[in-house]
Amino acid sequence: MLGFVLRRLLAAIPTLLAVLTLVFVIVRVVPGDPALVILGDQATPEATAAVRERLGLDRPLLVQYFDFLGSALQGDFGNSLVTNRPILSEVRAVLPHTVDLTLASMVIGVAIGVPVGIWAALNRNGVIDVMARLLSLIGLSFPVFVSGVFLLLAFGLHWRLFPVIGSADLNDPLDRLHKLVLPAMTLGLLMAAYITRVTRSAMLQSLGEDYMRTARAKGVPRRRVVWVHGLRNAALPIVTVVGLYVGILLGNSVLTEIVFNRPGLGKIIVGALNQRDYPMLQGLLVIYCFLIVIVNLITDLLYGVIDPRVKAA
């Protein structure tokens, strides 16, 4: 197991390096001098030069690149231009909100998507199947901000079941959960739609296999055949999709955070864009990619747990 983990960790290093390089390039090829952006058009050349020096922009590109790489690898992304606080500590302050939201949406997605997908597969082309397919198609067609606004209108403003504004107190678990419900539902329903579809097709494939017939013939109860034999074999594609869509969840959390006025990574990135906080942007991009690389790693490790053949390979 340890060897497997180490191999996967090593394989993630080139990706991370490439990500860092791309982030460096993106932030620099874009037209516009950050110093001018910060100071405005009326800045004197002296002031501009001073800001450029403070940002390290006056040094050769290659020096800047290796400096960026070196600090980033140590987890140091510099200070925000706006608050002048270390970027990592700004991120750390809101990260729990984003992690809460992502995890809760994944749980909702799996809790709805897996049973509905199995149910649909068992009733192939029946009423339940057609309903499940139609509903999941509608679910994944909903832009997150639209479903968020609709949920907010219904449960926040009309029935007043949940708070409309979601800056939760992290030390109060009940408050944290209460304010998480609507945002997590918004993203969770999107996840549920994706997971229903992939569970349905993976189960259909698994239900048609010989070992399923053998198990039934041996007298294993239908419920056990479906949930143990069938699901275990359908689990690989489901885990893949859940892992892949964490990226979509992270991206869409920007919209959820705006609609529900929640703190989080998305909120900071929009703020950093509006204020042209380049170091912040650079740091956030790397952190986003890092999170996704970590999730991919966990997905890979789960493969090994679900299917021992993966580990051997």
């Binding site: 791309l22 993106i26 990226g247 979509i248 869409n252 920007v254 996704i292």
Partner: peptide, 23 residues
């Protein structure tokens, strides 16, 4: 394909957001 994989590792909405905001 390595470059493509790196592009894929950005959440697409975030990538779009940044490119539009900067351009």
């Amino acid at each position: 394909m390595q470059v493509m994989d790196v592009l894929l590792s950005f959440p697409s909405l975030i990538l779009g957001l940044i490119v539009v905001a900067l351009l």
